[in-house]
């Protein structure tokens, strides 16, 4: 058990509720005006509609902007440098996420990425939280 364990950010109920979105980058489309959102919405900011359908997103996209974090956030103190970015997905919406499997100094705008799943946190007591991340398409 590491010292980062003391940051309790999620209760068990929250973890269960957020699993579908954390594991599979899902979007929701407003049934009234067709606007697509990655952020979970109850009311459409465009048309104020309240009806949404779940849309599975492919997870593929291009880096729209990025940064290299040199001073990691406290719960991931020992992680070392990592990349963060806003990804413009194939479907036209943006998603925010960490960019993994690449030296963050090598990141460039326009790089092609794909979504994968990585271990984000381990929280007391024994809850492991996985989250989608983006990694560069190499092959």
């Amino acid at each position: 058990m590491t010292e980062e364990y003391r940051f309790i950010e999620h209760c068990a109920g929250d973890i269960n509720r957020t699993i579908p979105k954390r594991y599979r980058l899902q979007g929701s489309r407003c049934s009234k005006c067709g606007a697509l959102f990655v952020t979970k919405r109850l009311i459409c900011p465009e048309c104020k509609g309240t009806d949404f359908e779940e849309v599975a997103l492919s997870g593929r996209g291009k880096v729209y902007t990025y940064s290299a974090v040199k001073v990691p956030l406290l719960p991931v103190l020992k992680k070392g440098h990592y990349g963060i970015g806003i990804i413009e997905l194939e479907e036209g919406v943006k998603a925010e996420g960490q960019i993994v499997d690449i030296d963050p100094d090598d990141l460039k705008v326009g790089m092609e990425v794909d979504a994968t799943i990585r271990r984000a946190r381990e929280e007391y007591p024994g809850k492991v939280i996985y989250m989608y991340r983006f990694k560069p398409v190499r092959r």
Partner: peptide, 11 residues
């Protein structure tokens, strides 16, 4: 974002 943003480690 309390559910998804926090664990993306955006400083």
């Amino acid at each position: 974002d309390e559910d998804y943003g926090v664990i993306s480690d955006f400083a």
